[in-house]
Design a protein around this nucleic acid. Structure first.
Lengths: 208, 208
DNA sequence: CAAAAACAGTGACAATTGTTACATTGCTAT
DNA sequence: ATAGCAATGTAACAATTGTCACTGTTTTTG
């Protein structure tokens, strides 16, 4: 178990990996499962071993705004932040590809900060990269119109899945950008005319 | 000097306050000064003793999107995050009321995390509260139209200045919400008709 | 296989936001 | 006092986005 952990979380020291093995638990979730909902209390810090998770911000009317992916080797910054203060979750996290997670109980998250340099650096680096990602999201909505936001969205998804074929319905995209399906269909058609994408059923092919 | 620090940063231990006194420097800036620009390297973690700072996200075309205020007793989360990794600033910070700042050199920021519990908690709490504030900003742009965003914007400013009289020009608001002056004038007029504000020159009075 | 459900395309129109152009008001400096 | 400037008001129009209504197609399900 220690070796697999060190393989995915390459920066962890052996001592830290041991601590994780002894104290943390492994949980599995299936595609479509909701790991945490807005308003729930967070009891653990979450590290991703395998699979993919999408993190959303929700509004009162059921809107789901996509913020970022969590992938193997990454941790949920919000779970770290909230964990320390035993706060409610400000986000919703949905499994999009079966995942295995390491759940680190609250008090350890804190304790290890003082004891394990590699944990401390991992946590700080998680904060930094998530903060930067969130700032980029702000850019995309604050400074750009829907057509550019859509391109940004598609590129991020292509980066994460590592392929050019996005298995997304127009409705799904519309929800995650908080607009309507018709708007997405319209903009995708224009992108197709510009030769940026090819449209198939449940499948958007990025050409550039 | 130790006493003033402890008065503003109430959670700091005496030892920490001493360390700050010995190692950190105090800087003053005038209203209108830009403390840090996007792309500059951050060399210090910034703590605010007095005055007010506005933090912005910039785009390539000179747009300035307002994110949050920094006030006495607070620290710039981005300066902490970037400091650790010696990264470039992702934000721009402008003085809106003459400030005195404590500048903590990079290496100390890191070192104190291990040595001073009260510093560790302050840093984590800064991350948490800024992250939450940024998430609220995302809400406002992702889920709300310009009229609601304007109300949200005005309320935040009123909270910070602690008064109902906002000394802001329509142009200033428009820039910070990344829209045009005409749109803001139009929406403010509607708000005035609804009895939410009273409009004066360079002065918006919140009635509710 | 037939019916239902999910997905996509599209036209028409409404609402919001962005842009242009110009008028008006009140403050400031000489 | 008045010229000049910043701030504001506003009308008219363009562009984008949101909504409604309806179509056809593909997939799923009983």
């Amino acid at each position: 178990m220690i070796e697999p952990i060190k393989k995915i979380f390459t920066s962890f020291s052996t001592e830290l990996a041991k601590e994780i093995e002894v104290n943390a638990t492994i949980h599995s979730y299936k595609t479509g499962d909701i790991i945490i909902r807005t308003g729930q209390y967070i009891k653990n810090t979450v590290l991703v071993i395998s699979g993919k998770i999408k993190v959303y911000r929700e509004d009162e009317n059921g809107g789901e705004f996509f913020m970022y992916y969590l992938q193997p080797g990454q941790a949920c910054a919000i779970s770290m932040i909230c964990a320390t203060k035993n706060e409610k979750s400000q986000i919703m996290a949905k499994v999009v590809e079966d995942v295995e997670l390491i759940m680190v109980p609250l008090p350890l998250m804190d304790k290890w900060m003082m004891q394990h340099r590699s944990w401390y650096e991992f946590v700080i680096d998680t904060y930094r990269s998530r903060f930067e990602e969130v700032l980029e999201v702000i850019d995309s909505i604050a400074f750009r119109a829907m057509d550019e936001r859509l391109e940004f969205y598609l590129k991020r998804h292509a980066d994460v899945c590592g392929c050019k074929e996005l298995k997304l319905s127009h409705q799904e995209i519309a929800s995650e950008l908080n607009t309507s399906r018709e708007v997405i269909s319209r903009l995708l058609k224009k992108m197709e005319q510009r030769g940026i994408v090819a449209l198939h059923r449940n499948n958007i092919e990025l050409l550039k």
